[in-house]
């Protein structure tokens, strides 16, 4: 299962490469490349965030084993997106890139998202998970709840006029994060009920 999903995750890159090779990226291939890599970075972020809700809803526990790989693919496309901006769009003009990061809010936000994603990618190995301990590892990886909105905001703010796509992304993200909020709330009330025996059955005399 895993190798198949791995191959599927590489398809967008292969498709992009094919379009570039056959001249199907249009008159402005650099812009098209950056946009498409950014789109896939966001999509993989949303897909990775969708694993846990889907697993809970369906009971398919094998989905959980794909989560780390899907998250790493989000990081992979983020890195390609960033590299294409730095190398293709700005051609390593570091001073221009620095100015843009400071001046353009959507780029500031995008860079912040990359920075926050970095520790998650670094700590994705089993060794790092053991070293950190499950509790701290999970706490750290909750950063993705911030990274997701940053990514969607980055896209939203750079769009010139048509907000359809960012709005779809924002709606999906809202559902995925909202589901967690509800699940968390339910778990808390459930555990509170367990803690206080009186809550489960109302006192018979009062």
């Amino acid at each position: 299962m895993k190798p198949l999903v791995f191959a599927l995750c590489l398809l967008p890159l292969a498709w992009l490469g094919w379009k570039g090779y056959s001249g199907l990226l249009g008159a402005n291939p650099i812009e098209a490349t950056i946009r498409e890599l950014g789109d896939w970075a966001l999509r993989f972020l949303l897909i990775a965030l969708g694993v846990t809700p889907l697993r809970r809803l369906t009971g398919w526990s094998w989905l959980g084993r794909l989560r780390r790989m899907l998250g790493l693919f989000a990081f992979f496309y983020v890195v390609l997106h960033l590299l294409s901006y730095v190398g293709l769009d700005q051609f390593f003009d570091w001073s221009a890139i620095g100015r843009e990061i400071i001046k353009r809010k959507y780029i500031t936000i995008g860079m912040l998202a990359v920075l926050l994603l970095l520790p998650l990618a670094v700590t994705s190995t089993d060794t790092m998970l053991r070293r950190l301990g499950g509790r701290r590892w999970r706490a750290l990886h909750r950063l993705v709840y911030v990274i997701g909105p940053l990514g969607v905001a980055h896209h939203w703010m750079m769009v010139k006029k048509d907000l359809t796509q960012p709005m779809i992304h924002a709606a999906i993200l809202a559902v995925l994060l909202g589901w967690r909020l509800v699940a968390w709330h339910n778990a808390r009330t459930a555990s509170r009920r367990q803690e206080s025996p009186c809550a489960a059955s109302p006192p018979s005399s009062a």
Binding site: N28, I30, E31, A96, K103, K105, Y106
Partner: peptide, 19 residues
């Protein structure tokens, strides 16, 4: 005079790599 969201100092001539 920059666009609020991007610089107008350079441009990409369609068909060229460097701005």
């Amino acid at each position: 005079v920059d666009h609020p969201r991007w610089s107008q100092a350079k441009e990409r001539r369609i068909g060229e790599f460097l701005k």
